[in-house]
Nucleic acid binder design. Structure first.
Lengths: 282, 282
DNA sequence: ACGTACATGTCGCTG
DNA sequence: CAGCGACGTGTACGT
């Protein structure tokens, strides 16, 4: 781990040159810089950020992040795959990041550097998120009655030539039934996505039905669905998440995936701290 | 600026407690921690990240970011507005972050801490991005022939009761013309967005036309547009960006906004560095 | 607070 | 490589 406080331009240049080279070669150091800087960006769009104190993060994969004191999104950034260059121009350290496709450049000019850090960052394991749309899909495959009584989902994969819908099958009367599901509140755009699929299918098979399944369906979305003779179903599946996880594993196993490779971790229920210990920010 | 290397659990606790309190009160310190940790998340979804070396960033506004060595997106995070709490449990420093709405908790358990940093971060200025969809809209307002010859945009604001479209007006033959524009390649969803607006309007005014304007329109999007009697126009407006900026300022001025408050900065053209100086990462 | 649309979205997958 | 869809999307804006 390397640490430099308040380096001058030359020292900062030397540090960054060394670290960026090492970053490219050994691939495993995360480099940070805190200091007063301007940022220019040009690529898919264009921006200019005037002087201010910010945090820069450089990752071994070429990611560049520039964070201010506010917000989850970096004020400027470069996605993975970019290359770095560092130089001193007119007495100031300039770090530039270049991405080839699409052609994008981020240029950071430091007026002063407060801190430079380089630490090896070993990545633990991949993150498995539970509660995705995929989980909802598998839940509905296992418990089709949650869509509607008598629904029988087809076994074939969701991948289809034309459009691919989340789930399809047949209802109690043998009519084709297409299901679109959303992990959160469904809006107009989601309703229209279902409409698009169904509309196409109805040309050759006019009796095709469509149902939108989500924890909540917005009013406008309902209107659109009603207008086009589509249905919806509000399903609070969050309560069934632990069960859905069971479903997910067995569901994936039945799809021929490697269930034994699934990390069998399950996050315990988290509770907010007692008031006394909490530090409020907002 | 505060720096602590390799603190034990007690020292880390003391540091974080002090800094988080200061963070809440004075609002201006960015706190970082690098170390081996596990992360649990529960809220809109749920996840569990096993032990590994990561970078944590805490912002004065309650933002929490947890970054691994790869990718632009944090592996776990908390958006602005969350509150923090720190404690030692079973000899390990535990940092938890709580968000009220939606109810979300991130819990970070440190097995070891390599580095703690706290720096004041003064935010410079807001970022103005050039090349947004808004810029394209204003360009088209100024040069309506880019949509099609004879197009006369209406003056009224884009805000409409039912759906709000980017631009509307009348064509050379006096027919209502609705324009949807996209800053980048337009896909099926974008075509469908236009369709949604036009379809509603056509109920009362069957002659309404619709045009999708974008630098590129995907093949499937074109098909959908054609099927519903909608048009499209591919327009490489990136080349006209500097002009569009002129347009933007005057356009906004004419809309009654405060043009003098617009930062008149304009990003110079950036060029990639010479090969020799570049450090490749990919 | 909720819904809607944009984003330098990012990311993963499929053709 | 392009397109398409999901995301714990985040973020701003309008109702």
């Amino acid at each position: 781990m390397q640490l430099v406080r308040e380096p001058d331009a030359e020292a900062a240049l030397a540090f960054l040159q060394t670290e960026l080279a090492g970053l490219a070669l050994r691939r495993g150091h995360l480099v940070q810089a805190v200091g007063e800087c301007e940022v220019q960006y040009q690529g898919r769009a264009r921006s200019m950020l005037t002087k201010g104190e910010r945090l820069l993060v450089l990752k071994p994969d070429g990611t560049l992040l520039i964070h201010t004191a506010k917000g989850a999104k970096p004020v400027n950034w470069q996605p993975p795959g970019a290359s770095f260059a560092v130089a001193v121009e007119a007495g100031r350290v300039v770090l530039s990041s270049h991405r080839a496709k699409p052609e994008e450049i981020v240029r950071v000019t430091f007026h002063s550097v407060r801190l430079l850090v380089a630490v090896p960052l070993t990545d633990g394991a991949d993150l498995a998120v539970e509660g995705t749309e995929d989980d909802l899909q598998n839940l509905l495959r296992q418990r089709p009655h949650l869509v509607e009584p008598g629904f029988v989902p087809s076994l074939r994969e969701r991948t289809s030539a034309t459009g691919r819908y989340d789930l399809d099958g047949h209802d109690a009367k043998g009519r084709r039934l297409v299901v679109e599901c959303k992990r959160a509140t469904a809006g107009v755009a989601d309703a229209q996505q279902l409409w698009r699929y169904v509309e196409r299918l109805r040309r050759t098979e006019p009796t095709v039905r469509g149902v939108l399944v989500a924890p909540r369906v917005a009013e406008k979305a309902r209107l659109l669905l009603a207008e086009h003779d589509l249905g919806w179903r509000e399903l609070d599946w969050a309560t069934a998440l632990p069960q859905s996880q069971e479903v997910r594993r067995s569901g994936q196993a039945s799809l021929g995936r490697f269930a034994q490779e699934e990390p069998q971790v399950s996050a315990p229920v988290l509770q907010p701290r007692a008031e006394a210990a909490v530090v409020r920010t907002a």
